[in-house]
Design a protein around this nucleic acid. Sequence first.
DNA 1: CAGTGGTCTAGACCACGTG
DNA 2: ACGTGGTCTAGACCACTGC
Lengths: 241, 241
Amino acid sequence: MSLPDKDANRPLYAQVRERLIDRIRSGEWKPGQLIANEFDIAAEFGVSQGTARKAISDLASEGLVVRRQGRGTFVVEHTPAHVLFRFFNLFDAEGAAVIPDSRDCKASLAAASSEERSTLGLERYAKVIRIARTRTRNGRPLMRETIALPEALFPGLAERQEIPNTLYDLFQKSYGVLVTRTDDRLCAVAADAQTAATLGVAPGTPLLKIDRIAFGLDDRPLEWRVSHCYLGDAHYLARTR
Amino acid sequence: MSLPDKDANRPLYAQVRERLIDRIRSGEWKPGQLIANEFDIAAEFGVSQGTARKAISDLASEGLVVRRQGRGTFVVEHTPAHVLFRFFNLFDAEGAAVIPDSRDCKASLAAASSEERSTLGLERYAKVIRIARTRTRNGRPLMRETIALPEALFPGLAERQEIPNTLYDLFQKSYGVLVTRTDDRLCAVAADAQTAATLGVAPGTPLLKIDRIAFGLDDRPLEWRVSHCYLGDAHYLARTR
DNA sequence: CAGTGGTCTAGACCACGTG
DNA sequence: ACGTGGTCTAGACCACTGC
């Protein structure tokens, strides 16, 4: 196999990179799996090992694969621990990660609202799966979360008996959907009556609202998640660079 | 000139990279300045152009230099616009950057509190410059900000008549200090009486508190900044790649 | 036009993990 | 011992910029 001539003006390493992404997206290379080595990829596409190396290195810096010297290159896997490390940004006063549990999790299927359609980039009449849950820390309510997912991407998810704590792990293992990046919009809001009751605080208590959109391999929205958090001594950490 | 033999076991490109950082830190290469090209750097350190290239590319991906094809490689410059783009994370409902002004800016010199010492990594009896200011958007108060800076890094700053709006620009232009990354800790708090009065809101109004530590080239803290924001329809955007 | 960074090659050897 | 990724070299040509 070799590269098509059509993209002749684009760098070879970029073309190789996209072909490798296709393999991950199609499931030919599954999460956690060892992929072909640099020399085999180079030979297959008819480029030098250095060019194949750059393609793979770019994927590694994008977080799609993990390179391990002496062992090989592996498709990134969303183990619960990995998700927590990568996309979970809550830490306590000592700087330790806050790891929440889930409670009272409910899922349902519904026609997407106009807001859901525009946020998730859906067509009219598209359906969404809505999940609402309370997340706890040491048994105390930490946040109230509502999640909207395109039904087309996650068929049958609403009917599952058990919704796991680490959703991104489920997305990948059961639906082959990889979360590659997230945009979190943060602001402070006053707790409304219902949220206050759920979290066990007085109405009007300041809460951190996290409005997240998660994106997949093709950079299209996969999930819209709104969390209202009563953090106590914890905080959300945003690192720039 | 060539590399010392002592670091013989560390990669050449890493050694070259650090020597280049030294030049930026020492002021030999100033912000905005064109640095030597790949071939000259390679010749100077006795490595191949590819190795010099990797050292420079690493600096570029760290954001310390900017490469411009056909022109050369330049040390990053903290123009007001650049700082706003890079370290300012507030956006309005339409996704446009919120650009605040400063008002009622006051600076003073004081002995560092124990909290300031531990946050900024200072010795006992070290002095800090404290800055307090109100930041506005379209003439309305947006946030109240208090800033602590090690006096050793910014001598005489407290005595300046004018404190500019974009501090990181001043740090670099007047003190040769480059901010390379920031850690923001975010939480929601209720406005106390004084902050509420300053921001023109009712006491108890939920505010977004941003507790930031800014780091320099050597990864040591340069600034501790705490902002209390009444954002209105705006939000803080945190992107996770 | 000359000079820069960007891409690409075809080799070489090293460091690491596993059998 | 073997295969992997990691480093390094010495060349080549292309694309862009400014004079």
